[in-house]
Write a protein that binds this DNA or RNA. Structure first.
Lengths: 224, 224
DNA sequence: CTCGACAAAATTGTCAACAAACGGAGCCGG
DNA sequence: CCGGCTCCGTTTGTTGACAATTTTGTCGAG
């Protein structure tokens, strides 16, 4: 019933991007049914195109499809978010170590500047700006690592947990906790110190996991 | 032109399984073009079904698709195989640690029996039997760990690297090297010792990476 | 003889329509 | 009044055909 979609050109790959954006932006809420005909009308594309897009998004973990019963936005539970963060802990530490080995002088400058910007964003209370810089940092580390396989997996997982990530970033005091962790990762990579970089990444993701559990405990204070 | 496919029922999900099997079994060789119409005829399914299957297999990393230029079997280079093994090293160590925490008494017996079977297979020179037990062990560890996210990722990666895995298993002396590594993983899990299990898994995958590089160096002896 | 452009074939992307399956509303019988 | 059954609406799964794009083969000019 909510027809608020902005349809660009009805291209083929645009549809997956459009639906993906609608999901990560929260326009489509978890467990919402995704009827092919409706999406077809919303995005001005054929049903076959929408169908292909849904299949693709299913393998990306953003939507759930059951035989003859349609597709719906996949709801990632807290438990799953923790699992995802555990996997990220392993893979981001791998990427951080690789990045520390391969980082170039130009990239060192780039990372340090990114760290400075993050510092300023936190000091200025710009939470959403800090969140964006956060994503940029993690992506840049993945790119520098040259580990395309790990980078691909991490990218997929990011899409699934973006909602929890966002909820986390909004918690008061969270940026002050994560900023030094991020700076530690940057320092270790720029110092060409793989083991310290891996350890810093592990510590950061461990902190994320703890914060996830804490945030959940706060929302549902008692569990009898 | 090679029409050797055994077509079961033309169901929808059967087609992805059929094509996947054809790829991992080597019936479709790397870089082979996958024309939708041909597959449609081979598997007695509509072109749309084949198309959906190809999209699904693309996200599984088994086929490569480019705009308006069709799909082909993805060829995983040695470099990519090493990358995959590095990711596996991180995730399997995670799963091994989790499994060591959660393993039940019945599962301990099961794992020990599996270890015994592997020992016998190596002693009897049953390479292919050992390879199958190898897969069973890794999958069982993933299941026991309860880390469904990591298990999913690992399953996807297994499909991509099955060809290299197989080549490795065929190397003379390889089973004698990997057997004690597998037994060490089993022992650590059964002893409820997470850190030792993780370390054993890391060591095993490290050995796999070394063997991959060695096998490549043997095939292409000089690299000027 | 080689290089460039044009035309034809092949292949993919897209669309609209048909058939099958699931879910629920309403009806009938106990 | 309640349980089970049937019928109907909705949604997905599938099919076939059409349009757009790329690739290949051929012809002519330099």
């Amino acid at each position: 019933m909510t027809e608020s979609a902005a349809d660009g050109q009805p291209g083929e790959r645009s549809v997956v991007a459009a639906i993906r954006d609608a999901i990560v932006r929260g326009e489509f809420v978890p467990n919402q049914r995704l009827v092919e005909a409706d999406l077809s009308a919303q995005f001005a594309a054929s049903r076959a195109t929408v169908r292909a897009a849904l299949i693709e998004l299913t393998n990306e973990g953003l939507v759930e499809r059951v035989q003859n019963r349609g597709a719906r936005v996949r709801a990632v539970s807290l438990e799953e978010a923790v699992e995802i963060s555990e996997v990220r802990m392993m893979l981001e530490s791998l990427c951080a170590a690789k990045a520390a080995e391969r980082v170039s002088d130009a990239e060192v400058g780039e990372l340090k500047e990114l760290g400075e910007l993050m510092h300023q964003a936190v000091a200025g209370g710009d939470v959403v700006g800090y969140s964006g810089l956060n994503q940029r940092l993690h992506r840049r580390v993945r790119e520098i690592s040259g580990q395309r396989t790990a980078a691909q997996v991490l990218e997929r997982l990011r899409g699934q947990s973006v909602r929890h990530q966002f909820r986390l970033a909004m918690r008061p005091g969270r940026p002050q906790v994560s900023l030094p962790e991020h700076l530690a990762i940057i320092d270790a990579i720029c110092a060409h110190h793989p083991e310290r970089a891996a350890e810093a990444a592990r510590a950061h993701l461990g902190s994320v996991i703890e914060a996830l559990k804490a945030a959940d405990a706060e929302v549902s204070p008692l569990h009898p």
